[in-house]
Design a protein around this nucleic acid. Structure first.
Length: 880
RNA sequence: GGGCGCAUAGCUCAGUUGGCUAGAGCGCUUCCCUUACAAGGAAGAUGUCGGGGGUUCGAGUCCCUCUGCGCCCACCA
């Protein structure tokens, strides 16, 4: 059965008897969830071809931490779009992924299972994690387990979490095809991720290199540029006395990192800085260590910071890396991967014939340098700073006390300690040029469009290539081994890649091609790459993973490239960017055409809702319990594309009211009984006017939905609906209860309007609309055709501007009649013995068309009209 | 420091290419059991459209500027 073509007029089925006496939202969720699942309402139909399919690159949520209302909000936006596209006739491919790859899960497992990964251990098939004691406490010291054991535990924990997420979203009514799920650590994702890596390696785009690397000394892993964040931290300027080698005059340097003084390789000032221009090209001697360092000029030096001349250390910050590279400086690395200072540094006297390390670690007074360095070697950065300040003070090389400041310090967004920059071997992906990326991204439609700027800004600000190596345990391993020479030294720059038929592969459990397991870690043998990939290196292939690239070519051809990438704005620089880059590098195309950006859920103070601040009553399940899914969805869909959504139970209350109103209004419209199979003509002006207005609504809702503005579609539909119930329904009630063609006109119009409104609401209120639909229609409303305005305009027949005006006048006169009763503090049922309507001739003519309906609704026995400049109504109320 | 966004009733928000007296709901006040709906209905009150300047016959809307808030980015001296 095809949903692509236009449908004929609705055929009311004779099932009116199933309308409940007291419609209620209670029980609808359980009922329809089961039904949808049983009937496969949202199951992807694989017979459809690419041009008939609308495919969605669903964000795989990180399955860790606590569920909060934000998890409901943005996924509901996408669901509204999915439901709209489905009704528009597309077969929607709407999968769900679980991001169980990465540090968050790793940490959670360490916490829940009291284990820690030690990749050097062999796999233990009989391992069981420590059990809680009588008090329910896990042992304080974690048990060390092998990587395969650790991964097994991760997968266990992840399955539990996935169940909770599935429960939440299924209840929220996401029209996901739950048969189409994937995980980012599963075999398919691992194979695709590794395969992508091998292809890039083959192209020379992925490469291994020793380079200065942003490093989290706490977690002991490399970190990519995209995962940085700045945090304001207290620090202090220390004013150090360097010596101008040529003159012996002091040169004062302000630094916040005095402990890096032994790593100092140069001084730098701005080329235009007249204070230091005479010194450029000359030499300075570092205090305490007597290193001879050049005095250089560079544009990035800021004359107004500190004394205007800075010391360059390898490496104190990312600017140091730029200076080091551009000024061609040597490396004096002192910070180790564990955040302590190197222990085995031996300063040498300066000798003309010196080479290698001796040149790097040379000093005008090697004995003093070594004595001073002895206070620092092996110490943490914190302690080293304390010690060196004491040394500097004792030797009179520091001017005054440290001057406290607050300054931004780079952190890994998941980290606890400031990042250091260390040199190590890492895997990189060479970025395309910025121009190439920008050109490629032009084909991407952003919703809202202004979010494109964030993507472009990031592309323009790229520094260096993408480091995809993480020194972690739980993740996609590199399909790589390294040869070990006869001396037992591993050559980390001569990788042995896996062949594609080996994938997915964990090199710590599988021998390298051409070797056998007995040669692992042996001289002349091989060693496994110990690291795992950056989680984004796998997530960046989510379109290919969900579409099962080279796993299920038939499916792939039907759904890829995808139509929509929905995601939040905070991961434009990571997920969106890396996905676009991967698509460009591996496939030479965009992996999706549209990207819809959602905001965050914020509290009324506009602060991002954080998990820690959540109190129990604001958890998503509690909200669903209290208000129901349709109500929570209503609230969520009030937040337009790209905008933050304010956490507001008031809106949920309104959403609930709307859903209930929909049930009751439907009960009324359908309870009038069926006219003769929908063939009755709509004849009355008021009915025609209503249908015309509805046709306009359909056109607008369709237009804004096509532009991904679900929020506006909902708002317009809702506004129409409340006017529909407050005015139109009240106006036609009397006529509809009567007999004759006028009554049949009302009934026909009501049914047509009801069918249309239900469909317009269906993407937002899937439960209530489906319930009402089942009272009188076959099949699921969510597989029915999105309304079009043409049949409504046809049904409205020759309705014109005058008819449209009649609707307005009717509503206004009715309002005044009600007001007269309200002012008199009498019941709305009170009869109006006579009424005189004053208005302009044109409006009175319009009133004439609908007069009967207005009189019925207002319980007016007799009416007169009189021309006047504006509308007013005089009434005589019946005695109480 | 740069970029983007936001600022309309006590609250949450509409207000499309400038165009009648700026709207809705919540909350508030008053009234009403009325045969779709009391988890309801009707009526009412509520605004220097963040401040200032400009363009225009006309500005919530366009331009400039300032302020506040949020997010993103940026070179830790």
């Amino acid at each position: 059965m095809s949903f692509l073509g236009a449908r004929g007029p609705p055929v009311p089925s004779p099932r009116v008897s199933t309308i409940p006496d007291k419609p209620t939202l209670d029980g609808l969720e359980a009922k329809w969830r089961a039904k949808w699942s049983e009937l496969g309402t949202y199951t992807f139909d694989r017979s459809k071809t690419r041009d008939e399919v609308y495919s969605i690159d669903t964000p795989p949520p990180t399955v860790s931490g606590t569920l909060h209302p934000g998890h409901v909000c943005s996924y509901t936006h996408t669901d509204a779009i999915a439901r709209y596209q489905r009704m528009k006739g597309s077969e929607v491919f709407y999968p769900m992924g679980w991001d169980d790859n990465g540090l968050n899960v790793e940490r959670r497992v360490q916490l829940l299972k009291a284990v820690i990964c030690d990749p050097s251990l062999p796999y233990d098939p009989d391992f069981t994690p420590p059990q809680p004691d009588a008090k329910g406490k896990l042992p304080k010291d974690p048990v060390r387990v092998s990587r395969p054991n650790f991964v097994e535990l991760c997968e266990e924990v992840v399955v539990e979490m996935e169940e909770e997420y599935h429960e939440l979203w299924s209840r929220v009514g996401l029209s996901v095809d739950w048969e189409q799920t994937y995980t980012t650590i599963g075999p398919i994702a691992t194979r695709i991720s590794q395969k992508g890596f091998l292809r890039l390696l083959d192209q020379g785009v992925a490469y291994r290199s020793g380079a200065p690397t942003l490093w989290d000394v706490d977690m002991k892993t490399a970190v990519a540029q995209a995962e940085l964040e700045d945090r304001e931290l207290p620090g202090a300027y220390h004013k150090l006395e360097f010596t101008h080698a040529e003159s012996g005059e002091p040169i004062w340097i302000d630094t916040t990192r005095p402990e890096l003084l032994p790593s100092c390789v140069a001084l730098v000032a701005h080329p235009d800085d007249e204070r230091y221009q005479p010194l450029f090209g000359q030499t300075a001697t570092t205090p305490l260590f007597g290193a001879q360092v050049p005095i250089c000029a560079h544009e990035l030096a800021q004359p107004d910071k500190g004394t205007g001349i800075a010391m360059i250390c390898t490496f104190g910050d990312t600017t140091d890396v730029i200076w080091w590279r551009e000024l061609d400086l040597p490396i004096r690395a002192t910070v180790r991967h564990d955040g302590r200072l190197e222990r085995d540094i031996e300063w040498q006297p300066i000798r003309a014939e010196a080479s290698g390390d001796e040149t790097v670690w040379s000093s005008v007074d090697a004995d003093e340098a070594n004595a001073n360095y002895a206070e620092l070697g092996g110490k943490t950065i914190f302690t080293a700073q304390k010690n060196i300040v004491e040394l500097l003070m004792a030797k009179g090389k520091m001017d005054g006390e440290p001057r406290p400041i607050t300054h931004p310090v780079k952190f890994w967004e998941n980290g606890k300690k400031p990042l250091e920059i260390v040199t190590s071997n890492q895997w990189f992906i060479r970025y395309p040029s910025t121009d190439e990326i920008l050109e490629r991204s032009k084909g991407l439609q952003f919703h809202p469009e202004y979010m494109r700027v964030r993507f472009e800004d990031w592309a323009k600000g790229l520094q260096g290539d993408w480091n995809i190596t993480r020194q972690r345990f739980f993740g996609v391993p590199f399909p790589i081994w390294y040869p070990i020479d006869e001396n037992g030294d591993v050559d980390f720059l001569a990788p042995i890649p896996a062949t594609e038929d080996m994938l997915p592969v964990d090199p710590t459990t599988v021998a390298a091609p051409g070797f056998d397991e007995s040669q692992r870690n042996q001289p002349g043998g091989f060693a496994a790459d110990p690291d795992v990939m950056d989680t984004w290196n796998t997530s960046s292939m989510s379109p290919q993973i969900a579409s099962k690239w080279e796993e299920d070519p038939d499916l792939f051809d039907r759904v890829y490239p995808m139509d929509l990438r929905p995601q939040a704005h905070d991961i434009i620089r990571t997920w969106l960017f890396s996905t676009v880059v991967k698509g460009h590098l591996l496939f030479d195309h965009l992996p999706f055409e549209h990207v819809s950006i959602s905001g965050f859920v914020v509290d009324p103070d506009r602060k991002k809702l954080s998990k820690s601040k959540d109190n129990a009553s604001d958890g998503p399940f509690e909200l669903l319990d209290e208000f129901g899914s349709d109500a929570v969805r209503y609230w969520a869909c009030g937040g337009g594309p790209g905008r933050d959504t304010t956490m507001d139970k008031g809106q949920m209350k309104i959403g609930r009211r709307l859903a209930i109103k929909l049930l009751n209004a439907s009960k009324f419209a359908l309870g009038l009984g069926s006219s003769d199979g929908g063939t009755t003509a709509v004849t009355e002006p008021l009915d025609k006017a209503m249908l015309l207005a509805l046709a306009d609504l359909v056109d607008e809702a369709t237009r804004v939905f096509d532009d991904y503005d679900y929020a506006r579609a909902l708002e317009r539909t809702e506004t129409f609906f409340w006017n529909f119930t407050d005015d139109y329904l009240e106006l036609v009630k009397g006529r509809a209860y009567s007999d004759g063609p006028e009554a049949e006109s009302a009934k026909a119009a009501l049914r047509l309007a009801l069918e249309t409104l239900l469909k317009l609401f269906a993407p937002f209120l899937p439960y209530a609309t489906e319930e009402v639909w089942s009272w009188w229609q076959d099949g699921s409303i969510h597989r029915s055709a999105w309304p079009s305005s043409a049949p409504l305009r046809d049904a409205a027949g020759g309705a014109d501007a005058g008819a449209a005006l009649s609707m307005t006048v009717a509503a206004e006169v009715l309002s005044l009649l009600r007001k007269s009763k309200s002012d008199a503090k009498v019941s709305m049922r009170t009869e109006i013995v006579s009424a005189t309507v004053h208005d302009t001739a044109e409006r009175l003519a319009a009133f004439e068309l609908v007069q009967r309906d207005v009189l019925d609704a207002g319980k007016v026995s007799a009416v007169e009209t009189a021309e006047a400049g504006e509308l007013s109504v005089d009434v005589v109320l019946a005695e109480a």
